[in-house]
Write a protein that binds this DNA or RNA. Sequence first.
DNA 1: TTTTATCTACCTGCCACTTGGTAGGCAACT
DNA 2: AGTTGCCTACCAAGTGGCAGGTAGATAAAA
Lengths: 187, 187
Amino acid sequence: MSSSAREAILAAAKRTAQAHGYGGLNFRDLAAEVGIKAASIHYHFPSKADLGAAVARRYWEDTAAALEAMLAETQDPLRCLHRYPDVFRKALENGNRMCLCSFMAAEHDDLPDAVKREVQAFADVNVAWLSKVLSAAALAGSEESDRRARAIFAAIAGAQLLARSRSDLSLYDALIDSYRAAGLLPA
Amino acid sequence: MSSSAREAILAAAKRTAQAHGYGGLNFRDLAAEVGIKAASIHYHFPSKADLGAAVARRYWEDTAAALEAMLAETQDPLRCLHRYPDVFRKALENGNRMCLCSFMAAEHDDLPDAVKREVQAFADVNVAWLSKVLSAAALAGSEESDRRARAIFAAIAGAQLLARSRSDLSLYDALIDSYRAAGLLPA
DNA sequence: TTTTATCTACCTGCCACTTGGTAGGCAACT
DNA sequence: AGTTGCCTACCAAGTGGCAGGTAGATAAAA
């Protein structure tokens, strides 16, 4: 396997960044987790910025693929919309982690430009998908669906953040319920 | 002035933490900003955890006072509710910063317990105030108002996070508008 | 078929720098 | 005399990153 180490590094870095952010990434701990030496990571990712950008890029690529797969599978926009919060729920289930790009959004001022771009791409991917699904479900006009999509994305990110700060998964569920009750998400 | 340095440290630490989080706080830079030496900060705050907790505590105390003042001044719950998003907008206006406690919520796993407690207190203060105002405006039953308050708080935190990641203040305004259009916030 | 060269993927060892924190001193005020 | 408030000087641990080496695979040249 030529790039198994590279994949292992990406996977470990993703897990770490979801719990400790970009600033929490460091070559030594990452190397120990993968089972190689710190300097070897520089072979695959010359600088920390390269690593961070690669992790964030992989993150939104995976998310985009998962969302498209969900849509292709169910063929039901409303059902997809209903399941969308589960995407963010999974991170909380997995050791009270959070969306890598939400964390990095907070760290915005300290991110290399290449990383910032990937973080924005994650938001773009989510908003575009939500907008498409909202339109398909005929829940909003094509102009309004874009703004609604952004609102849903931001609200869910906030719910995840609040739930994480309490280590309380049920709080996340309650917040999603409240969004539905308030009309932000379809009931 | 006995505690002017202490106050200056707290103020500088607040500004820094709003842009770089708890992890971004460091004694050297803080001292330089205040005009004293790094070691001197340890006189006022023995450890970084003490400093972080003090900053977070002061943050929610100030917020609580500002919210109560707003309520006392206008005497109009609906008007207060309408102005609530401005509290979070101010951080963005001030150098694209964000709520100190939202940032620290992301850093949850790396926070000393004392800091975590103050971060939670900030959320409690906001939710309690919102809940009170919602009830007073007769917009929700006393049970429902609590859940609605949490939803509003989380959604606004998410909006701030997203707007910050784009350095786009108008995006924050657009998101608040969308929340109103969707019925999460009163129009 | 042996030799030479190149590439991959990793290693050891080091460097300059930053981190939070400590020890001890000193001058002013009470 | 004791306390307050700050200082200089230092430290151990950790940071990202770099220079240089090496074992093994591949492949072209002799």
